[in-house]
Amino acid sequence: MKKSNSVLLALVIAFTMTACSSGTTVSPEPINLTGLYKGTFTNTDENSTGTITLNIAESIDGTTVSGNIIFESDDTNCLSNGPITGTISGFSLALTADQINSNESGSTVSTGTLSAQLTQSNNGNNLDGTYVTANTVGLVCSNQSGSGTMNLVRS
């Protein structure tokens, strides 16, 4: 009997709380992207993986970013320290990186461009999306050809 009374009391309290309070809504806005992001990429063409470091600064008007991107592939590291530029459209970020890779003697061994389409989530702490490379010349290795996914976390 005591147990059923407790259940009834809990229900009454729940109904009262529900009746006396109102629901809430959330509609977040994009967060400033300036920061250092670290994460991983997976090249879907070759099923290879590696790490990425993305260092970007958002412009004062909040419409563009600039910075650099560092790829460290588990295989040959083709793309490194590429300067990037990008356009911010709300929660999405379109990045372009011009990649020029040199060998130890300073000669250019590979070039190409990389385009990434990322989306911010989790209050701007995550950047996830896809990338595709183009106009690659020189070495063909995991992150220099094809396309893949990127998942980054603000550090």
Binding site: L11, A14, M17, S21, S22, G23, T24, T25, G90, F91
Partner: peptide
């Protein structure tokens, strides 16, 4: 571009 909305129920409603 996009904007999004999420709805959350009133307190106590989960019970």
């Amino acid at each position: 571009l996009w904007a999004w909305l999420e709805l959350a129920p009133a307190a106590g409603s989960s019970l």
